[in-house]
């Protein structure tokens, strides 16, 4: 179905979106740095923290092409995507810290964060686990004629999972408004993409299913945003698409992984592919923003993200009584705690 176009469209090559894209990428970078700090300060409930530093352009660029009402799922490295879809970083940080004030009241954490209001159908700790949900969301969007798209964000590791191909096939077969976004940070945990597949040209797989597919260099957030816009326009018209963003995972798989499987030379080269620094340099070079203005912007972002730590530290954990809540819908009996059951049985006659 044809839907009205998104209101704010920048022409390719214009500078008008770059300051916003830069700001979002800086927010993601700084947020992830603070997540690391939360962990170091012992305030993080989760030991499973996967940072998206080096991948900011994927989140900021693709999400710029999405609009209110669109739905999406993310993977275990999805903080940046949620932020770019409008998440409140303080509530995110609180969730990562396992606090009641978090998006999921401390039950989800980094890898199961979600917010229905923002269309976030959930991060996922199963590689590829969130992908088929966007097919269902696509069916719902078509059924209700909402004009919404649904986007699955995942890493290159998920290209090893069969469910990706099942889902792409269904989306193509049924012409659903689904976007598949593969953030190729070159590593599935400790295994480099060329050690996991004989054909690392990942977009070719989607082409085989009949999807519009392309690969874009994640160094340049404007290129990502432009590719995102191009594909999303088609997706809204029922032409599902697949976008690969090539980037580099700056740090280890999770917080404690020092990446001994990568040589320092490789990391140096990889980290030189820094989308945040690249955009900053472009803004200065094109005289869109002066360095001092960017410093101010960075300082604002740092203050915003510092506040998420202060907020999280001040929050309390969920009460123990919430443990049995939300296994089933409200109004359904809660499961009986083990201790209660034992006391009941032994208190007999």
């Amino acid at each position: 179905m044809n839907q009205p176009q998104a209101v704010h469209r920048a022409d390719a090559g214009s500078n008008s979106d770059l300051p916003q894209l830069y700001r979002m990428m800086r927010r993601i970078r700084t947020f992830e740095e603070r997540v690391g700090e939360l962990f170091v300060r012992g305030q993080s409930a989760g030991s499973m923290l996967h940072l998206s530093i080096g991948e900011e352009s994927a989140a900021a660029g693709v999400c710029a092409a999405m609009r209110d009402g669109d739905r999406f799922t993310t993977h275990h490295r999805g903080h940046g995507i949620f932020l770019a879809r409008g998440a409140d970083p303080a509530r995110m940080m609180a969730e990562i810290g396992g606090k009641e004030a978090g998006y999921c009241h401390g039950k989800g954490g980094s890898m199961h964060i979600a917010d229905m209001g923002l269309g976030h159908l959930g991060a996922n700790a199963i590689v590829g686990g969130g992908i088929p949900a966007v097919v269902g969301a696509g069916l719902a969007a078509r059924h209700h004629k909402t004009g919404a798209i649904s986007a699955a964000f995942f890493g290159d590791g998920a290209t090893g999972q069969g469910i990706l191909y099942e889902s792409m096939n269904m989306a193509a077969l049924w012409s659903l408004p689904c976007l598949f976004v593969c953030i190729n940070n070159q590593y599935g945990m400790g295994t480099r993409i060329d050690q996991a597949t004989a054909n690392p040209r990942l977009h070719e797989r989607a082409q085989a299913f009949g999807l519009a597919a392309e690969t874009v260099d994640g160094l340049d957030v404007e290129a990502v945003a432009e590719a995102g816009r191009r594909l999303v326009d088609g997706v809204r018209d029922g032409k599902p698409a697949f976008l690969v963003i090539d980037c580099y995972r700056f740090y280890g798989h999770a917080r404690k992984d020092k990446s001994p499987y990568r040589d320092p030379g490789e990391e140096e080269t990889g980290r030189a592919k820094d989308p945040v620094a690249f955009a900053r340099a472009a803004l200065i070079e094109r005289k869109v923003l002066e360095e001092s203005a960017l410093d101010t912007l960075d300082a604002e972002v740092a203050a915003e993200m510092d506040a998420t730590i202060d907020f999280t530290v001040a929050q309390h954990e969920p009460p123990l009584s919430s443990m049995f809540r939300d296994v089933y819908a409200p109004g359904e009996p809660e499961p009986e705690p083990v201790r209660t059951r034992i006391d009941r049985i032994l208190a007999r006659g």
Binding site: P132, A133, G136, A137, G138, M170
Partner: peptide, 26 residues
């Protein structure tokens, strides 16, 4: 056929699509 949907032989994605559809209001 929009409400009685024949699928490919893809059990994981059939159930996964149902999960997403249910979350999105179907």
């Amino acid at each position: 056929p929009e409400r009685v949907i024949d699928t490919p032989i893809s059990e994981p994605a059939i159930v996964g699509a149902a999960v997403g559809a249910a979350m999105a209001g179907l």
